[in-house]
Amino acid sequence: MTASPAADSLWPTCLEIDTAAVVANWQSVRRGPTASVVKADAYGLGATKIAPALHAAGCRHFFTAHPSEAMAIRDLIPGAMLAVLNGLWPGLETDFAANDLTPVLGTLDEVDRWAAHARQNGRALPAILHIDTGMNRLGLDASELEVLAADPARLGGLTMRYVMTHLVSSECPADAINETQRIRFAAACARLPAMPRSLANSSGLFLGADFDSELSRPGAALYGVNPTPGQPNPQRSVVRLRARVLHVRDVPQGESVGYNGQWTAVRPSRIATVSVGYADGYLRSLSHRATAYFDDQPVPLVGRVSMDLSTFDVTEVPGLAAGHWLDMIGPGGVDALAAEAGTNGYEILTSLGRRYKRVYL
C-alpha cells in the first residue's frame, strides 16, 4: 500500500487499535457478569483508552495487576469494581480504601491487615479472596485455607465480593490439571462462608459449563489473542501494525544483509529496510522467521532484527518503493506473529513500544 491513512511524515510506524473490536470481543464471551482484565496497560494497548470504552459498553468489573495501574484508570470507570490482582502491599491500606480499590487477598497477612483497616475506620471494605489450587504463585495455600476455614471471623469487616482461583492450563482442554483445579476450588469454597466465585479466564470460558462461575475474567481474548489454540480464533483482530519502507536496494548474489551476515542472497535480490526493530517490541527472535505483507502479498524477513530496523526480501514485489508501508502483522493476526517469534500473543502485545503513532479506531 502506498500510504497509511493514519500515518504522517513524523512517524515511521503506525499501530492502529480497534477499541470497537475490543468491546465486541468482550461481548462475545459475556455470560452474566464478565470482568475485563486491563493489566499491563490493557496488554500494551492503552488502558486509559480501552477501559472507558468497555465501561461505556456496560462492563462494571475490572482487574489490574498493580495499584498504580488501577489508579491510572480509577476516575475513568466510575462506579466499577476495580480489583488489584497482585494483592495488598503493606502500607497501602489507606490508599486502597481512599480510592475504592478492591484488593485480591492472597495471604492471611493481607486478610488480617485489610480487615483491621476496615475495623479501624468503622466501615466495610470490599475484598476478593484468592485461593491457590495449583499455580503456586499467589493465593492462600492449603495450610492458610485450613486456618481461615477454622476461623472465618477473620473476614469480619470485609465485604467479600468474590472468591477466585487462577487456572494453570486452561488453553489446553485435555490437561487434567483443569479438572483437578475445579474440584479443589469447589472444595475450598464449600469450607468458607458463602460468597460469589470467579473462576474462568479467557480460555477457561471455553472449557464448558462446569467452569462457569459468578464472574469470569477474560483478558487476552479481549485483545484478539486466540483463547482456543489449535482451533479457529473466535475473537476479532484488534491491532494493525505497519512500518514505513525507508529504502529499497539491490543486493547482488553472494552479498549478506544485516548484523553478522546471517543471511546471504542466493540470487540478485531487492531488500526493503523498514523502521521497526526490537526497541519497538518487534522481537529479535523474529530474525529469519517473520513475514510482513504488502497489499496482502507476503514478504519474508531476512537477516537479523536490529534495534531500529528490519529487512525484508521484496524481490517478488517489483512495485514496492521507499515510502510504502508494510503490514507487520498479517492475516493470521498476533498469534501468527507470536508463532514466528516462538512465543505467545501476550508477549507480542505487551512488548509493543512507544515509538508507534497510536491511533484508536
Results as ranks from 00 to 15, higher is better:
residue 237 S to F: 11
residue 250 D to Y: 00
residue 204 G to C: 06
residue 257 V to K: 05
residue 237 S to I: 11
residue 265 A to N: 01
residue 216 S to W: 10
residue 260 N to V: 12
residue 245 V to Y: 00
residue 263 W to N: 04
residue 271 I to C: 03
residue 268 P to A: 12
residue 223 Y to Q: 08
residue 225 V to A: 08
residue 259 Y to G: 01
residue 260 N to S: 14
residue 267 R to A: 10
residue 260 N to K: 15
residue 280 D to G: 07
residue 237 S to A: 15
residue 277 G to W: 04
residue 273 T to Y: 03
residue 222 L to E: 12
residue 272 A to M: 03
residue 265 A to K: 02
residue 277 G to F: 06
residue 234 P to K: 10
residue 261 G to N: 13
residue 232 P to S: 02
residue 275 S to Y: 15
residue 246 L to E: 13
residue 281 G to Y: 13
residue 231 Q to V: 10
residue 250 D to V: 00
residue 229 P to S: 07
residue 207 L to A: 03
residue 258 G to L: 01
residue 263 W to E: 11
residue 222 L to S: 09
residue 228 T to S: 01
residue 273 T to N: 04
residue 211 F to L: 03
residue 236 R to T: 14
residue 237 S to L: 12
residue 279 A to T: 14
residue 253 Q to F: 04
residue 270 R to D: 08
residue 223 Y to S: 02
residue 256 S to Y: 04
residue 272 A to D: 06
residue 217 R to P: 09
residue 234 P to V: 04
residue 209 A to M: 08
residue 271 I to Q: 02
residue 251 V to G: 06
residue 250 D to Q: 10
residue 280 D to R: 10
residue 238 V to A: 06
residue 231 Q to D: 14
residue 258 G to C: 06
residue 219 G to I: 10
residue 214 E to W: 09
residue 240 R to Q: 14
residue 225 V to G: 09
residue 216 S to D: 12
residue 266 V to R: 13
residue 259 Y to E: 13
residue 206 F to N: 00
residue 243 A to R: 00
residue 269 S to D: 06
residue 272 A to G: 01
residue 226 N to M: 13
residue 257 V to D: 06
residue 262 Q to F: 11
